[in-house]
């Protein structure tokens, strides 16, 4: 579905991404892991076509994304940024409706009944009914993050690119949100690529994992080879203990200065 070939990218002169080769299968749920600053967001923005690689290309269904029309691309790919730049007062409903822009048939007529119905459905699905009329600027961080995901879902994409969609969510909503996304991926065959910092959530939800370090792919695979004390020690530099439940490995960080906790 998505194929990245020999992709390198740098901001100004600094090289950030170095020769990345990856592919994501249709219907897969891939977590991108890696320390702060390892280039995860930059990679997503390259897949999005917002940043243009210095060399290499991104293909979707074997078509180079540089040759795709913006509208066509946006019908295919939904994106949730790590941090939204939104700073104007509109209602949650109006905001989510923006996800229908790529599907606008006639710009002058604007959104149609069908667009509003889809928006309604997503608002229900994301449990956002009680915020419908609220000004987005007054939402809490986590509430807004769910609204952002709702907007991306409104695009009815075949591919979802999520940049830390759960960073502001409490564990309940984090699990719920990833659950909704997982269902879409399993039942509707949507391909999900999501940056996650919570390794346990990643281990539980993701079918594939990509571990990044210093702008390169350190390792690909799944929870069985990546959620591993030695690997994580090497990439992140912390000690950990792995436990298993239902065949899924979970990680417990080991605090070197544990002694102080017992004082």
């Amino acid at each position: 579905m998505i194929r990245i070939e020999n992709l390198s990218f740098g901001y100004c002169k600094r090289n950030i991404l170095k020769n990345i080769n990856l592919s994501f299968k249709e219907g897969s749920f891939t977590g991108i892991l890696g320390p702060n600053g390892s280039g995860k967001s930059t990679l997503l923005k390259n897949i999005l076509g917002y940043l243009k690689p210095n060399s290499g290309s991104v293909f979707i269904n074997d078509e180079n994304i540089n040759h795709m029309k913006r509208k066509e691309y946006a019908k295919l790919v939904g994106f949730v940024p790590q941090k939204s730049g939104f700073s104007m007062a509109v209602s949650v409903e109006e905001f989510i409706l923006l996800g229908r822009i790529p599907h606008l048939k006639n710009k002058w007529n604007g959104f149609e009944k069908n667009d509003r119905e889809i928006t309604d459905e997503i608002i229900k699905q994301m449990n956002l009914e009680k915020f419908r009329e609220r000004n987005v600027l007054t939402l809490s961080g986590g509430e807004f993050q769910r609204v952002l995901v709702a907007r991306a879902l409104c695009q009815q994409p075949k591919i979802l690119l999520l940049d830390e969609p759960t960073s502001a969510l409490d564990l309940n909503y984090a699990v719920e949100l990833l659950g909704v996304v997982k269902e879409l991926s399993v039942y509707k065959g949507i391909t999900v690529v999501t940056v996650l910092h919570d390794l346990n959530l990643a281990s539980f939800f993701c079918s594939d994992l990509v571990l990044m370090k210093n702008g390169g792919v350190y390792m690909t695979g799944n929870q069985n080879n990546i959620i591993d004390s030695d690997v994580l020690k090497d990439v992140y530099g912390f000690d950990s203990k792995i436990i298993e439940d239902g065949g899924i490995p979970y990680i417990i960080p080991v605090c070197k200065s544990r002694g102080v906790l017992n004082v």
Binding site: F79, P81, S84, F86, I101, Q155
Partner: peptide
Amino acid sequence: SGEEEAHSLG
């Protein structure tokens, strides 16, 4: 929402 998100909305 800024350029990046506008871009992602087509």
